[in-house]
Design a protein around this nucleic acid. Structure first.
Lengths: 198, 198
DNA sequence: GTCTATATTCGGATAGAC
DNA sequence: GTCTATCCGAATATAGAC
């Protein structure tokens, strides 16, 4: 039955097309300022198609959130595999975040700005998600190895990543007009000095 | 005419009562998850009273935003007047923010979390507001005086305040369970090391 | 100036054809 | 599986009494 093969590809394409469009609109206008009809129009699909693939508008946002967090997590896993020291791992994280913010600003905007508690039933703070947990683990190991000064990991982690993340926000908001990678060295030097063992 | 005196006080009370209630609901449930009827019920006033004092729900949020930014700005002005060096000023800012986050978490949550672009016509990024401009100015002066290392002020400022702000966020989200002032010394040491001239 | 009741718009979700 | 047309509830804002 060739129809299954021919049907499956567009089916998946359609779902991704809906998700891609929703990401753009959500990150640009916000979840509540985006109606399902807006998604329908921008994606060039029908309402029925959206409600065939997702049970509700909320589910679209939830699926999007899930996918993006998973992608972020894969980035973290790759970094842990590629580097050994806490210093190198954390620097790679900042570099990757900066790179992603330039190449996929909608994704970063959605993950960082979206208040998921506002449109998702299970109030999952973004900082409790797995990629952020992995960043916290990197810091913990850095403290254990002596690379990072002795202190609460819950204080060290935001002290290390808070600056770069804030900078990223400024970039997404259009306040910072130069590409993030061009300030990576300076930003990282500041971030690392904040917690490094002298 | 005594009625003007007796009427003016409750009139102003009512407006403030609406704003206080709106702040609580907005910061707890978000702007879009809060209906005017919710405000009406929680504030114990009528719909008519709300629409007498404000032309729209959006205007309630805008007035709230304006008031809170103004209060933040007064805090900054006082700090600038009370301290001389960039180090002391910036530390006082972080201390004040930590203190405010404990005593008035709704206010801080609204200012930091609310995506004002989503419900305010004039898309004013929070970082362009005057209190944040003043923080940037403190950093600029620190760079000029040599207290802070030579670098772009737009990189130094988030590097300095990003950590504390991130920590503040963790506290508001309930991830950090200890009061912020108890970690002020550690957090500030990290923040200042990030940018300080050695 | 404050209230109640109501109008109008709008968006999420469904039904049923194809 | 995808579409069009439609329903229903909710939320903002208004009208008009007191």
């Amino acid at each position: 039955m060739p129809n299954t093969a021919t049907a499956r590809a567009p089916e998946r394409d359609l779902r991704n097309q809906i998700l891609d469009t929703a990401l753009q609109l959500f990150s640009r206008n916000g979840y509540f300022n985006t109606s399902v009809h807006d998604i329908r129009r921008a994606a060039g699909v029908s309402i029925g198609a959206i409600y065939h693939h997702f049970p509700s508008k909320e589910a679209v946002a939830a699926a999007l959130y899930h996918d993006l967090v998973e992608r972020m997590d894969r980035v973290m896993v790759d970094i842990v595999a590629a580097h050994r020291s806490a210093h190198d791992r954390c620097r790679a994280v900042v570099a990757a975040l900066f790179e992603l913010a330039e190449t996929q600003p909608e994704m970063m905007s959605f993950i960082l700005n979206a208040k998921h508690r506002e449109f998702m039933p299970d109030a999952t703070p973004i900082c409790s998600s797995r990629p952020f947990e992995r960043m916290l683990d990197m810091v913990r190991e850095g403290i254990a190895s002596g690379e990072i000064r002795q202190m609460e990991a819950l204080v060290a982690a935001p002290s290390l990543f808070g600056g770069p993340l804030r900078l990223l926000q400024l970039r997404l908001d259009g306040i910072l007009t130069v590409p993030l990678p061009s300030v990576l060295d300076t930003a990282w030097e500041c971030a690392w000095r904040a917690v490094a063992n002298p």
